[in-house]
Design a protein around this nucleic acid. Structure first.
Length: 374
DNA sequence: AATACGGGGAC
DNA sequence: GTCCCAGTATT
């Protein structure tokens, strides 16, 4: 990476003053969050897993539901995986849930949980950030968190003009400075304060410099253009398309459940793709699609076209193809988008077949009923 | 070092 | 549409 700039040197030299300003602000202005109420190692671990690449607001309802169902490491370790995945349904990045499950089983097998960042980082799903967060918060370990918030704050404090290819590269580059600034006596609060500052004051757009507790340390504020930092290369979005099949027979819906060893969606259900069913897409496109939806993930934008299965076609259940009765859809774990889309399609059909509601056309209603009857 | 993971909120 | 969020695992 680039050498340390003079701005970073000056900031590190003021570390004690910086910590005092930051922690005084945090003591007065931190948000009340459920994992800060009667904090415990377990709450910290669960919250940090959920917060990987996910905003606080999104996590809140999942965290409450999770803690109610699985209140401690022992309960999580003893839980069957389908329950764990079900509790994670809709939160995305499902390997986090499977890793957290494995981690709980590893922790309860130990005489005591590890207390150092290095030891935690050997556990599944725990990288540099999560190890620092868990051990600084729970054990006052001297490990600095470097997440997106911290990168943004440090890039602005030092007005760092370095163009970074991505946030991971930037995080690595800022780790020495974050470590130099870390409070040696309140590392957990310091780490949380930095992230709190990024989330509530040092916004990516329109930062609130006038109320910032460390504005006097900030070179970007002095420059007048704090939004110019950090400099990150723009992401290139790749478009993809996939055809899904809606196949319903005798009140059951055919779903694809990815293998436990699959890279994506291990043990998660989705509508099967035409390829997974071995259906020729040209046959499917002879009728208008039931729906077309777009989902997005990191650098991909995926348009999914959902088509009705050919009426004459028959499919057998297998390891990865399962018939799920509509009445039992709630019991399986679907991806968030497919949970939503399937609900929308069923609701639209119920609406169309209700006498009180308008029907688009008799023929389409008849076709849907025929499909439903198998 | 790159890329996959293939989610979702806010603008 | 765009950006990026309390990142990690894999190659």
């Amino acid at each position: 990476m680039t050498r340390k700039t003079s701005a970073a040197d000056a900031l590190a030299a003021s570390a004690a003053d910086f910590q005092h300003a930051l922690l005084t602000w945090f003591d007065a202005h931190q948000r009340r969050l459920p994992w800060r109420d009667a904090p415990s190692l377990y709450k910290t671990v669960v919250s940090e897993f959920m917060l990987q690449q996910t905003q606080v607001k999104t996590v809140l309802p999942y965290f409450a539901r999770w803690l109610a169902a699985l209140p401690d490491f022992a309960a999580l370790a003893a839980a069957p995986e389908p329950q764990v995945l079900k509790l994670w349904e809709g939160l995305g990045y499902y390997s986090r849930a499977r890793n957290l499950h494995r981690l709980a089983r590893a922790v309860v097998a130990l005489p005591a949980p590890p207390r150092t960042a290095a030891a935690w980082q050997t556990l599944p799903g725990v990288g540099p950030y999560t190890a620092a967060a868990i051990t600084s918060i729970s054990f006052a370990a001297p490990a600095a968190c470097v997440d997106g918030n911290v990168v943004r704050i440090l890039a602005r404090l030092t007005a760092d003009p370095t163009p970074y290819r991505d946030s991971a590269t930037a995080a690595k580059a800022f780790t020495p400075l974050a470590t130099a600034l870390l409070s040696p006596v309140r590392s957990g609060d310091h780490n949380q304060a930095m992230m709190e500052l990024g989330a509530t004051v040092c916004f990516r757009a329109h930062p609130l410099c006038t109320v910032c507790p460390v504005f006097s340390f900030c070179a970007a504020r002095r420059s007048g253009e704090p939004e110019q930092f950090p400099r990150l290369a723009p992401k290139v979005i790749e478009r993809r398309a996939v055809t899904r099949v809606w196949c319903e027979r005798a009140g059951a819906l055919l779903l694809h459940r990815a293998a436990a060893t699959a890279r994506r969606f291990a043990n998660i259900h989705e509508l099967p793709t035409a390829a997974q069913l071995g259906v020729d897409e040209t046959v499917l496109s002879s009728h208008p699609p039931l729906a077309q939806r777009t989902r997005a993930i990191t650098r991909f934008s995926i348009t999914e076209t959902i088509c009705a299965a050919p009426a004459a076609q028959r499919y057998s259940a297998s390891d990865e193809l399962v018939w799920v009765p509509l009445a039992e859809l709630e019991t399986v774990t679907l991806s968030g988008p497919h949970r939503r889309w399937i609900g929308e399609l069923l609701a639209a059909r119920a609406n169309a077949s209700s006498p009180a509601k308008h029907r688009p056309s008799p023929s389409s209603a008849t076709r849907r009923r025929a499909s439903a009857a198998g």
